[in-house]
Design a protein around this nucleic acid. Structure first.
Length: 599
DNA sequence: CATTATGACGCT
DNA sequence: AGCGTCAT
């Protein structure tokens, strides 16, 4: 199976961390009365007691479920405490939870090699190197193992699990003494995770659950197996068995339409069943019956064997910021003014959060997007009024204003929206409004956009000399913080922000799929993907179009005059020369005098 | 009238 | 650029 030395060398220790009923924990920290009693967090308690978006384990045990109405929860659990999400600008405001999450993942980031925040209350960690280091010193490992309280090679707290699960998780599954197995890496990782969880609890008061395995998919799969406040390890030796009986929809990525199609049309019950479809067959399914998308085939053939090569990135800040509100039934918006009223409100929140992103993460947005849903239209057919379901959703984007305050954001959004909201939309009513900021770029200056401009200037000019290097955004130097005692041994400084590479599930490396289901080692040989197996010719012809992107050159209308004025004269020259080279002289000259008008 | 708000990312 | 899918 997978216990080759090669597999062990390359095996990673990847962790999925998941805050337990997080909104409830946040509310409980603010109001300890809520501790130990069934309680739930709802938003908008006016209608039927509000919608439940988080619930305590006491409430869950009483049959309360997420998405229930507060009133329905009271039926099954009369003594439930309902807490309402704060409201600002006439909408639910999740700031409190976002910030609480940040505090948690800052701790995680400090204590792990890599921390990738994936939502308000979840993150992946890669602690491979830390685990290896710990393994290299057995005495140290044993000492910290004792301190951590982690049990290795024994059955742990699996009261709620069935026999099948008990066999898979923990029971005799880890042999830390054996340096050659992937299990010892996970054993060391388990100790480190326990320490991280203790640090989070200590610094923030919050508890979390974690899954520990060799890749993102597997760690996520098991992180919730022992909630709350427990960690679960999944050995590579148990993966094949686990997947063979795992309902397909329970695996990340198969919970939606794709999973439904595979279940309905291919009579696949368990993840392991997918193994009987070779890569070829999956591809043919994609081509012939449109059950799967062609580019999903490679990913699927790996996933069903427990393989997931996606790396853990280093990022705790969001890549986009958005806020929105739905307007159901009679509250749907039926006039432009009404829409503007709410765009104004949403803009206030977005502006605040953008300011926060700038202060906290040095992020500056380049793009604003507005999207809306418009209600189902009623159409007359054969004299009958027929209600066409399926709401229409639209989105438009525009450049983010240089000073993204609420007024400017609202102005920019309304400008694109007014063209869109025709009488048709207004008659049907707007049922949903979202605005968001994306293309967040990392800057170090106070002056908004100046680094971006410099980057553009430099990339537009051909040569990149060493002397230019100071123009680029520097990764923050890792502060050599002094730590003492045990903490020193497993903590790391915060990792700097790194923009992600664009991932592609199928066309990435890692395509070879072995037949031994337990093998979760990374495959790095680049083999033909489904795509070029079947579309070699096509992919060649499209390559020049899609995969090779020429960077946009700087044009006058991209240059903000206030930004330009701040540049050293030497750079002003550079900017001008870079622009002159691509524009007709006349146009350039004319614009130079008029360029106070921005696009 | 009622599963909200918010992310990430793939496809075209 | 805009739309669709998946997740919680």
């Amino acid at each position: 199976m997978s216990h080759t030395s090669k597999a062990t060398e390359r095996a990673r220790c990847v962790v999925h961390v998941d805050l337990d009923c997080f909104y409830v924990q946040v509310e409980r920290k603010m109001n300890p009365e809520l501790l130990k009693v069934p309680c739930a967090v709802v938003q908008y308690n006016k209608f039927q007691g509000g919608g439940i978006i988080a619930l305590s384990y006491e409430a869950k045990a009483r049959g309360v479920r997420r998405s229930m109405r507060g009133n329905d929860a009271r039926v099954v659990c009369p003594d439930i405490r309902l807490v309402t999400v704060p409201t600002a600008n006439e909408k639910a405001d999740l700031t409190r939870y976002r910030n609480a999450g940040s505090s948690v993942f800052e701790v995680c980031a400090r204590h792990s090699d890599l921390c990738e925040r994936t939502s308000i209350d979840e993150a992946y960690l890669d602690i491979t190197l830390q685990a290896r280091t710990l393994l290299s010193n057995m005495d140290e490992f044993k000492r910290r193992l004792r301190l951590s309280g982690v049990m290795i090679g024994t059955e742990s707290n699996l009261a709620d699990s069935d026999e099948f699960e008990k066999e898979i998780f923990w029971k005799d599954s880890l042999q830390p003494e054996n340096n050659d197995t992937q299990d010892s890496l996970l054993a060391a990782g388990s100790v480190i995770v326990a320490e991280i969880r203790a640090a989070v609890k200590d610094k923030t008061g919050y508890t979390l659950s974690a899954g520990i395995s060799h890749n993102k998919m597997l760690s996520k799969l098991v992180s919730g197996k022992n909630k709350p406040n427990k960690q679960t390890v999944l050995s590579s030796t148990k993966v094949e068995k686990l997947l063979s009986r795992l309902p397909l929809r329970d695996l990340n990525g198969f919970g939606g339409k794709l999973g439904d199609k595979l279940i309905d049309k291919c009579s696949i019950k368990y993840v392991g069943d997918l193994k009987k479809y070779s890569l070829m067959k999956l591809a043919k399914m994609a081509i012939g019956s449109e059950i799967v998308r062609i580019n999903s085939a490679t990913w699927m053939s790996q996933a069903c064997r427990g393989i997931c090569t996606e790396t853990v990135k280093s990022r705790i800040a969001a890549k986009s910021i958005s806020c929105g509100k739905t307007f159901r039934g009679p509250t749907r918006l039926r006039s432009i003014d009404n829409v503007k009223e709410y765009i104004d409100k949403l803009s206030i929140e977005l502006a605040e959060r953008l300011q926060n992103a700038k202060q906290k993460h040095r992020q500056v947005a380049k793009l604003i997007t507005v999207s809306y849903h418009t209600g189902s239209k009623t159409v007359k057919r054969k004299g009958q009024e027929i209600n066409l379901t399926g709401n229409i959703s639209k989105s438009r984007s525009c450049r983010c204003p240089a000073t993204p305050n609420a007024v400017n954001i609202s102005k920019a959004v309304m400008q694109v929206l007014e063209k869109e909201l025709d009488s048709e939309c207004i008659r049907a009513g707007v049922t949903c409004l979202y605005i968001g900021a994306s293309k967040l770029e990392n800057v170090r200056d106070e002056a908004t956009g100046i680094d971006t401009l410099l980057k553009k200037v430099v990339s537009a000019s051909t040569a990149t000399s060493e002397s230019d290097s100071h123009l680029y955004i520097q990764k923050p130097k890792q502060a050599a913080k002094r730590r003492t005692g045990i903490e020193q041994m497993f903590t790391r400084p915060l990792t700097p922000y790194e923009p992600n590479k664009k991932p592609n599930r199928s066309l990435q490396a890692a395509t070879r799929v072995s037949n031994d289901g337990g093998d979760i080692q990374q495959k790095e040989e680049t083999k033909p993907t489904i795509h070029n197996l079947f579309f070699r010719a096509k992919s060649k012809s499209t390559k020049s179009n899609s995969s090779i992107r020429i960077q946009n050159q700087l044009t006058w209308n991209q240059v903000d005059q206030t930004v330009f004025r701040e540049l050293p004269s030497e750079l002003q020259k550079e900017v001008m020369s870079s622009i002159r080279s691509e524009m007709p002289q006349q146009a350039t000259r004319r614009k130079r005098f008029k360029w106070s008008q921005k696009p």
